[in-house]
Design a protein around this nucleic acid. Structure first.
Length: 800
DNA sequence: ACCTCCCGCCATGCT
DNA sequence: AGCATGGCGGGAGGT
């Protein structure tokens, strides 16, 4: 009954009807459709939660519910079972490879925590919707329904939705209702976030934190004061960077309710977390650092532990969702003291949206235009999100906006964000799960398989039909991914670029790098502050990188491991260490992902100063490895390129050749460290002139891909509207091009160029001032600072 | 023993 | 008041 209705209304796409792309959803839908009638009303009612679980689908469900009421355990068991059996969402029932309820008592009896993990849940959730939904269709999501179908408490759905909302993949329509936007706005959002992150100087903040750590370890401490200042300056009035939710023009929060406290947490935290990846060079962010930055109070000591722990918990939640989106993947950063959990960006590379602040624009003209135009959206203007401190809107306005937007959407079918889609991100979207654990894997695999099969058929048809209209972009990405790469060395910092002269000006200094042969050109820009830093040796870290990966699942691919090391040495000199390109493309998305896991070591204790010991050994090994790899890999530097700017299709992002990228970076890095080449030589990453990033520490990163294989499934999965595009390997290039084309002018959505942070309390960020501070600092303390080397190893998790 | 992070209590705020 | 949201942190599964 209702369910059906609701489905219709809420998630039409599920039905397959319209949307082509529905991936798994189709399957699921189908299933649901079949089942629902039988069961009867599901009810959606408000809270599904546990009770709901049982509820619905079958008559027996009621019984179960009753029982469960009595015993939670039973309840759980049922739930699990229900999950699989019923379907709620998952495909498992169908394919199932494993599992089964029937068979194993084991599983059945207990679903295991993993099966209940947010990551898996998120996969299920994502599987229901196409990456690039047809805007013309109703893409509403009814939270209650979803919760029921997935057999989870609504609370969990909120966790997912909040993160998705932060990326503007969904937007709230009303009470219990969200609209699914999929990845249409993703690149745009990321660009905006990157811009905001740059404005906030997150890169610097990261650096500072790291520096502090080092110092602490070594007793350096002296510079605390300074550092704090810096941070503070960057931060808002409160002392910490408080930004508000960054909205995109096209995707605004419509419900008033969103405003309130929501500005706080998960959503904002998610955005900030993403920003950290986007602004940091290696694109690897440890939870510890992220937590500190998010907490704002970075002042060292204050972090109270509980707060820190809470933040970490939240970050895991966010990370699980982002991992499901294939935007990040878990890795470990190993330092002397141990491994710390960290995440590596595997999403598309993005260029910052232009906003007022950044001068340089990497975008292609078309993009710019689009962006501009977008700004003009009526709706937006009406409600400009931007300015508002609050998101509250009058209901009537909301409606109006909504209607406008919907129209707009229809009109523009084009995808909005063209920017770089490349990376596979898109393609993978749905796909890719990474199972960390077998269970998850299995579950995911099943889902995927189902999806594929069902989808592919439908999809193709549909897409073809609709292809025109939609926007989409295709993602391309290869299937997989597998690989990892690694990145660069410096953990922190910003592009390796070099600024030559530090200018106090606020604006960033754009550098245009020569492009690699094939690639589009890219520009890197630095903010003054950064530039300064670079000039002076920041502490960054030097890096060493190691990548390791295993390929797993997919097998073939991957592989790339490289490790590098650098050894550099030294301390002060750091200059030597430059970071190679920092950016690495990340490319690959592997298909599989797993949620998280890993040991992390972060914890607060960093202090142990024991450093080097174990580290050195490892390093050595790594170095060796790195060398080996290098030899093998050496390849085109180009691939390493830093930030691709244009929309260019080619962007590195996709990296068709994953291996290369890392390798080049590594190679450079290694060579430099070895003294074989000068830093300036570096490849693309850091061009030139000046490079110097340097960081005192050396780190090595190992990335090991975890996943097992699920990828394949994924490959197929994507929904991109454009069917043909996907290529297995990831050559996304072509695809990209295709996507891009659609610059629709009117697009409404667009851009916000302005991304802004809203700072509630205060004014915006103090950019200039902060810059100044930084400068001062850099000069002052950085110059002298000695930094011990460290090694950092990043490894993706493996699953066990 | 520690890392992850599920679970769900309960505050917050809209309706 | 009731319900939707979602902050938060205890505590337990996993390794």
């Amino acid at each position: 009954m209702e369910n059906e209705k609701e489905n219709l209304f809420c998630e039409p796409h599920k039905r397959g009807l319209m949307k082509t792309p529905l991936k798994e959803s189709t399957t699921a839908n189908i299933v649901l459709a079949a089942i629902q009638p039988d069961f009867g009303p599901l009810t959606t009612p408000t809270k599904p939660k546990e009770g709901s679980q049982g509820e619905p689908w079958t008559p027996t469900a009621n019984l179960k519910m009753l029982i469960s009421a009595v015993s939670p355990e039973i309840r759980n068991r049922d739930q699990k079972r229900g999950l699989f059996d019923n379907r709620s969402g998952l495909p498992e029932a169908k394919d199932c490879i494993h599992e089964h309820l029937s068979g194993d008592e084991f599983e059945k009896s207990q679903p295991s925590r993993k099966e209940k993990s947010l990551g898996l849940l998120c996969h299920k959730f994502l599987a229901r919707y196409p990456n690039y939904p047809n805007p013309a269709v109703n893409n509403d999501i009814c939270l209650d329904e979803v919760a029921e179908e997935l057999n989870v408490e609504r609370r969990r759905i909120y966790d997912i939705v909040n993160v998705l909302e932060s990326l503007h993949m969904v937007s709230r329509l009303a009470k219990n209702r969200y609209t699914w936007h999929g990845r249409h706005n993703l690149n745009k959002t990321l660009g905006t976030l990157k811009s905001v992150g740059e404005e906030n100087k997150y890169a610097e903040q990261i650096m500072m934190i790291k520096k502090k750590e080092y110092e602490q370890e070594f007793d350096f401490i002296k510079s605390y004061g300074i550092e704090d200042h810096i941070i503070k300056s960057n931060t808002g009035p409160n002392g910490h960077p408080d930004m508000c939710f960054v909205e995109l023009p096209g995707v605004e929060f419509r419900a008033a309710s969103v405003n309130s406290r929501k500005d706080k947490s998960l959503r904002v935290m998610s955005q900030k977390f993403v920003m950290l990846f986007l602004v940091s060079t290696p694109q690897i962010v440890s939870l510890e650092v992220a937590a500190k930055i998010l907490i704002g109070e970075d002042h060292v000591e204050d972090l109270d532990k509980s707060k820190f722990k809470t933040k970490i918990r939240r970050l895991y939640d966010i990370a699980n969702v982002l991992s499901s989106l294939d935007l990040i993947k878990k890795v470990h950063v190993t330092e002397e003291r141990g491994r710390k959990p960290a995440f590596k960006w595997t999403g598309p590379e993005i260029s910052p949206n232009t906003s007022g602040s950044s001068p340089v624009i990497p975008f292609t003209p078309s993009d710019l235009e689009v962006r501009r135009s977008s700004k003009e959206n009526c709706a937006k203007n009406l409600f400009s999100t931007r300015g508002k401190p609050n998101f509250t809107r009058h209901p009537s306005l909301i409606k109006l906006v909504k209607s406008i937007e919907s129209d707009r959407r229809k009109i523009n079918s084009a995808p909005s964000s063209p920017i770089k889609t490349n990376k596979a991100a898109e393609s993978s979207q749905n796909s890719a799960p990474f199972p960390s654990k077998m269970a998850q894997l299995a579950a995911i695999c099943k889902m995927q398989l189902e999806e594929q099969s069902s989808e592919s058929r439908q999809k193709v048809k549909v897409q073809l039909a609709r292809s025109g209209p939609c926007k989409p972009v295709a993602p391309l990405d290869p299937p997989a991914n597998a690989e990892m790469e690694l990145t660069a060395p410096s953990l922190i910092q910003p592009l390796g670029v070099v600024p030559l002269i530090p200018s106090p000006l606020s604006s960033a200094v754009p550098l245009i790098l020569p492009q690699a042969p094939s690639g589009p050109s890219y520009a890197i820009y630095l903010q003054p502050a950064q530039a300064h830093q670079s000039v002076t040796p920041p502490q960054g870290l030097s890096p060493t990188v190691c990548t390791t990966h295993s390929s797993k699942a997919t097998g073939s691919k991957d592989s790339t491991d490289a490790t590098t090391e650098k050894a550099a040495n030294d301390t002060s000199k750091a200059s030597a260490s430059t970071r190679p390109g920092s950016l690495l493309p990340a490319p690959e998305r592997q298909g599989a992902k797993s949620r998280t896991r890993e040991p992390a070591g972060e914890r607060g204790s960093k202090r142990a100063s024991v450093l080097e010991d174990s580290g050195s050994k490892k390093k050595f090994k790594e170095d060796l490895k790195g060398l080996e790899n290098v030899s093998t890999l050496m390849v085109s530097p180009t691939s390493v390129a830093a930030v691709p700017v244009g929309n260019g299709p080619a962007l590195t992002s996709s990296h068709p050749v994953p291996i290369q990228n890392p390798s080049s970076a590594i190679v450079n890095f290694t060579l430099q460290h070895l003294g074989l080449i000068s830093p300036s030589v570096q490849m693309s990453a850091s061009p030139g002139p000046g490079i110097v990033p340097v960081s005192p520490r050396i780190e090595s990163v190992n990335v090991v891909p975890e996943n097992a294989g699920t990828q394949q499934g994924r490959a197929t999965n994507y929904d991109s509207p454009i069917p043909g595009q996907s290529q297995p390997n990831g050559q996304s290039v072509a695809v990209t091009g295709a996507q891009q084309p659609v610059p629709v002018t009117p697009k409404g959505s667009q851009l916000v160029a302005e991304s802004f942070f809203r700072t509630p309390g205060g004014p915006t960020k103090p950019t200039s001032s902060s810059c100044m501070d930084f400068e001062g600092v850099n000069k002052t303390s950085f110059g002298t600072l000695f930094v011990p080397q460290r090694k950092l190893e990043v490894s993706t998790e493996d699953v066990h």
